[in-house]
Amino acid sequence: MMRGRVVIVEDEELVAQDIRYILEDAGYEVAAIFHSAEDLLESLEKLEPDSIIMDIMLEGELDGIDAARIIKKKMDIPVLYLTAYSSDEIVKRARETEPYAYILKPFHERDIRVNLEMALYKHEAKKNRVKLVREKAINEYLKRSIEEKEQLLRELHHRVKNNLQLIISLLSLQIRYIEDPGVEEFFRDYVNQLRSIAMIHERAYPSSGTYIIDFQEYVRSLSSHLISAHGRASDVRVTVSGDTAELNMDTAVPLALITAELISNSLKHALSGGGEIHIEIRRFNGRHRLVYRDSGPGLPEDVSFPEGGSFGFRMMDNLAGQLGGHIKVESSDDGVVFIFEFFEQFYADRIT
């Protein structure tokens, strides 16, 4: 197996050929032999060697140290000097180019093999260290960037909750001055819808760059709040069952508005004398199914879903379409059943 491509730069042809045989016997490929630094620099980029063994004193105007200095600026190739010169001045100049070895002539072939092997090993280790440092720097940058975005998301989430509370408090204060019972009920319904959204933000927890809602637990809290708000805690019971449904905010908010409207309608119209509400959520084939039923008398004969009902029915139908589904209604003397199949939504999907 070839151990690497080496270029030899030596103005003595016999010495160059000797080095070539030593390298080839050791399993290296000699990519080229040059006698001058100028010829080396002209062809180096095409050859792409793994290492260069170079004499210092060469034909032409540039010596080996000049060539090594140019190579260091342009390419990351380990250079090994092979020279008969050992004066302090030459060694000082050579050291400035950070060579991987400085082998004095006359050399032993073992010197060539060992120094070249060590040079290639050190060069590979250096590249790996540089790679690790670069990757660490990139990872640190990405980590800081993610932390900054998460902090911004938490801040926005916090501000949304605060703003919702401000609107709820404003409407609640205004309701105190309303004397018409019908208008008061109208505004209380809107306050309850806003609270249903606020509860979504209160119960959301971050996961994989977004906020997730445990919708079963949310429905239990929502139903408890609405029952208390309507003063029906003593005569209405709500049960929630089915599969664990962890939904993102894009899905949970419209679904919460639909669920809040269904519960409010049951409390106001279907269960005036008390009764039960059962909410079931199931997961299947990439979809979700919400089944809502109450024990009331069912929809009146002159009311149909969605056109024949109130604004609330039309709102539910529009929100169902936003979630990529539809609501089916079954009504009988044993109560009413709303069956809603939908898909989890993602912001990017809605944009496209």
Rank of each mutant, 00 (worst) to 15 (best):
K126C: 00
R129S: 06
K131P: 00
L132P: 00
L132T: 04
L132R: 12
E135K: 11
K136V: 04
A137G: 04
A137T: 13
I138Y: 08
N139T: 10
N139E: 09
E140R: 11
Y141V: 03
Y141R: 15
Y141F: 13
R144F: 12
S145D: 08
S145F: 03
S145A: 09
I146P: 03
E147C: 03
E148R: 11
E148P: 00
E150G: 03
E150S: 09
Q151R: 13
L152P: 06
R154T: 00
E155Q: 15
L156V: 15
H157L: 08
H158E: 12
H158Y: 13
R159D: 07
V160S: 07
K161D: 00
N162K: 14
N162M: 13
L164M: 12
L164R: 03
L164E: 02
Q165G: 13
I167W: 02
L170E: 11
Q174H: 05
Q174S: 15
I175F: 02
I175R: 12
R176K: 12
Y177N: 11
Y177F: 09
Y177G: 07
I178T: 07
E179N: 07
G182N: 10
V183K: 14
E185P: 05
E185T: 07
F187N: 06
F187Q: 10
R188V: 12
D189F: 01
Y190E: 15
Y190L: 05
L194A: 08
R195G: 10
R195P: 01
R195M: 06
R195H: 05
S196E: 08
I197V: 15
A198T: 03
A198Q: 14
M199I: 06
M199R: 14
I200S: 00
H201F: 15
E202K: 04
E202V: 03
P206F: 06
P206L: 04
G209Q: 07
T210A: 02
Y211I: 06
I212L: 14
I213M: 10
D214G: 02
Q216T: 06
Q216F: 01
Q216K: 15
Y218C: 11
S221W: 02
L222N: 10
L222P: 05
S223E: 02
S223H: 06
S223V: 06
H225P: 02
H225L: 14
